[in-house]
Amino acid sequence: MIEIRDLTKAYGERRAVDGLTFRVEPGRVTGFLGPNGAGKSTTLRMALGLDRPTSGAALVDGMPYERLTEPLRRVGALLDAQAVHGGRTAAGHLRWIAASHGLPARRIDEVLAAVGLSDAAGRRIRTFSLGMRQRLGIAVALLGDPAALLLDEPVNGLDAEGIRWIRTLLRGLADEGRAVLVSSHLMAEMAQTADHLVVIGRGRLLADTSTAGFLADHGRRRVRVRAVDPAALAALLAEAHPEAVPVGDGAYDVPDAEPGELGALAASRRVVLIELSVTHDSLEDAFMRMTADAVEYRAVAA
């Protein structure tokens, strides 16, 4: 399990990560969300002992990463799929990483097969597309058969088939009991992949919640209705949809309703509608609003 505890990273006055606390629990996919520059990568780099925290700690099984012996057996990470030497072959790249932990050559073949790069094992990485590099980066993360995975924007550069593949892979890894943290700046993508969401903005924690809870709070569909005779509509809704919310000008928002059903209901009562539309409180909107608030808050504070 990975535990981020009151983690802060300051560059001069600016705080890239600011008092962040959350956990990456085993057995589930945790989505790590935030706009670009929110501090996701810095957090992951500190979790891997690459950058030193200004204060606080990032712990792997209760220990700082630097103190782990054979860390790749505990944590597999993909930070930047482009951070590879183009002159090495895919197998050559994995070979030196395997050598750092005394892993057998068989393991290299296994992970290459797992990411679908067996046929490209002997090719130089400079000939790889970004999608192939992402797959190679995931092969590196899987090499030590780790209990936890930290993947920074692994979906970048993948095509539709690749995105579906990675979703299935992450699900499978979590189902095997591993702790999986996946960062992304795309809310909709994470909503489909993650069980749990950690949202940050400007280095601060904005939400730490189950995906289902986040969807329930922010992902509602509403049907807006307006009638020639507002009083008749009000009477109808009071009876059939007491949860409807008046939004002014005689219009009502009905959460989680079916527009067809509402239209039919109005017709059967001879209520003439002049508006019947569906609005989504989209996850992306909710996410933008949430992070925009953080930006505003910071701007005022500064």
Partner: peptide, 13 residues
Amino acid sequence: SGTLATSLAAVPD
């Protein structure tokens, strides 16, 4: 090339 991050993740000491 940026492989230093991977090197230090593998050998953090």
